[in-house]
Computed example of a mutant assay.
Amino acid sequence: MLDDLKNQLAVTIKAYQSEGKPVPDQLWEQGIYIFEIENALRENDEVKFEYYMEQLLGGGTLIA
Rank of each mutant, 00 (worst) to 15 (best):
D3S: 05
D3G: 00
D4I: 07
L5C: 00
L5P: 00
L5M: 10
K6Y: 07
N7Q: 09
Q8L: 10
A10L: 11
A10F: 06
A10T: 09
A10Q: 12
V11Y: 10
T12N: 10
T12I: 03
I13K: 12
K14I: 01
K14H: 03
K14R: 09
A15H: 10
Y16N: 02
Q17V: 05
Q17N: 11
S18E: 13
E19V: 03
G20L: 00
G20V: 00
K21W: 09
K21V: 02
K21H: 09
P22G: 00
P22K: 12
P22S: 10
P24R: 08
P24Y: 09
D25L: 08
D25T: 08
D25P: 05
D25G: 09
Q26M: 01
E29C: 02
E29K: 13
E29L: 10
Q30Y: 08
Q30L: 08
G31D: 09
G31H: 06
I32A: 12
I32L: 14
I32M: 12
I32E: 13
Y33D: 13
I34V: 14
I34A: 06
I34K: 05
F35N: 11
F35W: 02
F35H: 12
E36W: 02
E36C: 05
I37C: 08
I37F: 09
I37H: 09
E38R: 14
E38M: 13
E38D: 15
E38Y: 05
E38L: 12
E38G: 04
N39H: 07
L41V: 14
R42W: 08
R42G: 05
E43Y: 05
E43D: 15
E43K: 13
N44G: 02
N44L: 11
N44P: 00
D45S: 11
E46W: 01
E46F: 02
V47W: 09
K48G: 01
K48N: 02
K48A: 04
K48R: 07
F49H: 14
F49W: 14
E50K: 15
Y51M: 01
Y52G: 00
Y52D: 04
Y52L: 04
E54T: 11
Q55N: 15
Q55P: 05
L56V: 05
L57G: 15
G58K: 06
G58M: 08
G60M: 04
G60N: 07
G60E: 14
G60S: 07
L62F: 11
L62Y: 09
L62C: 06
I63T: 14
A64W: 08
